[in-house]
Design a protein around this nucleic acid. Sequence first.
RNA 1: GGGGCUGUAGCUCAGCCGGAUAGAGCGACGGUUUCCUAAACCGUAGGUCGUGGGUUCGAGUCCCGCCAGCCCCGCCA
Length: 602
Amino acid sequence: MLNIYENLNIQLQNALARAFPEIQGNTHTYSEFDPQLVPASKPEFGDFQVNCALKLSKFLRQPPRDIATAIITQLELNKEFLKICESPKIAGPGFINLTIKKQCLIQEISRRLTDKRLGVPLAVSKKNKQSNAPVIIDFSSPNIAKEMHVGHLRSTIIGDSLSRILEFRGYVVLRLNHVGDWGTQFGMLISHLKEVAPEALSTANAVNIGDLVTFYRQAKQRFDEDKVFRSTSRNEVIKLQSGDPIALKAWNLLCAQSRKEFEEIYNRLDIRLIERGESFYNPYLEGVITDLNSLELLVIDDGAKCVFLKDKLGKDGKACPVIVQKSDGGFNYSTTDLAAIRYRFNPAPVGDGAQRVIYVTDAGQANHFAGVFEIAKRAKWIPDDCRIEHVPFGLVQGDDGKKLKTRSGNTVRLRDLLDEAVERAESDLRLRLKEEGRKETDSFIKHVSSTIGIAAVKYADLSQNRVTNYQFNFERMLALQGNTAPYLLYALVRIAGITRKGGQLDTQTNNLQFQLAQEWSLIKAILKFDDVIVEVEEELLPNRLCSYLFELSQIFNRFYDQVPVLKAEEPNRSCRLALCKLTACTLKQGMSLLGIPTLERM
RNA sequence: GGGGCUGUAGCUCAGCCGGAUAGAGCGACGGUUUCCUAAACCGUAGGUCGUGGGUUCGAGUCCCGCCAGCCCCGCCA
């Protein structure tokens, strides 16, 4: 109901200005002009409430209820307002409760029945020239030569959903996979392989990903324990970064091997990404240093080139440094991230010309990003009308509240985690079929259980506010009831059932009419979709979309349970079918923005 | 030592620009099926919003102190 909200808001601003002209001339009272129009906190209060009378009371030196009365008087003089809204009511200490006219809601519903975007407007960029400027979402970002593990789950799922939401709003979204393909750890892997498995560095497919992981672990251990190995590794990185052909070939082979593994997971999750690893920014690293140097931001400390942060204080009360070039001449992740920021905001052809850059990484990197963003801002690499944001998320924990591990204490591989979700979904389904005496084909069972399993993993993650740690639990996410993917999928299955039993969802919409409370609450829930999408775009919190879809499903299930559709008399039958259709479209669209496909039967 | 995040029902969590009597789900307890998939629906019980101050007409929400947990803090990413 975005359009209704905006319309009402303007009417209220006008009413306020007419009722109290004295607040108009006051320069510092922008907030007093705000009618504070918000959705009603409870259904009894109507659809919207206006909270400003209480706030204005002090400024105007009048009781809140008098102020509310004056606003209402002005509103009721306005024909435009009377078309939309029932007569406003003053409640409590001075709230104004607004109820939208039923005819107006019906109009909105019939408009939506023919609107593929379900009321969600396309975003209009503030600047015309920027309308094609991409939004960059940097997410997933696994490391080459490692398998994807549970640590990549949240970034991948949340980043994908945010991408889908911004794409739906009409932005050009660049989904960048900033894979770790360039750091010191890479040098140590190559050094180690040179000794133990040189064929891996010259022959394609000589080692599989599992072996690579083992080699990586060994290399890491040597790196931590052996000084000599540490310095050969660092040399190896420098060789690579300066374009040594042998090192480059080895590197390419390792990347190709890992890429196969990643692609498999992304295909299962139905996630598209453009791989643009850290190595991509290699040609731009030097430029970062020269730029920072010419801006006089660089300080050489202990042999390393650093930028000292303004606000943050380090250990001894001194400013906190960010190292951008190590004493051995090598660059590190801060340098890469700075080069990436510069490139992403810089106009083409040597940049992406982005309007907004979003990083979906764990909350542990908050300090790092705060530092890097500060430097980029001081270097003026971020245009004033552009945004850069770190979208942090908490740890994935097990039931014990600690970082999720396997029983043997290893990190959980993402592929194993997905396998288990699907297996559990399948055994639930088979048990259910047996109990109900249903017979289904194997391909049906496979399809349904893999859809449910993956959906459950995604939904469980997305439905929680991302900033808190997330307790991973198969039973809970696959539960047949509650705020889970299966519950939402089931609501859609019920609607599909109505279609199968002869309900034509595409019925005439000229003369919609509704009487029952269950119908009206469904209507109001459907109409909130656009508000939710716009809110998620701004706040980057997909859990708000999940809550909405859950509520919509609950309200629909109540409607389905208490109100007959197919057996109703006309015109109720057609009108109810229209609501079913809109519910289905809204749920499907919402789920697809979460990256979750839906089912006809389950 | 410095910084960040978190603390809300037995459990897992929502809570939007500060607004009316703090909400869900699970679990517990009780009910509903000649009817479109009961993977559903209806009802009951359950709270000192970590804690102490402050700001405000009004604080779970903002500010300050304290307690607890997790994370980060110069050559890993």
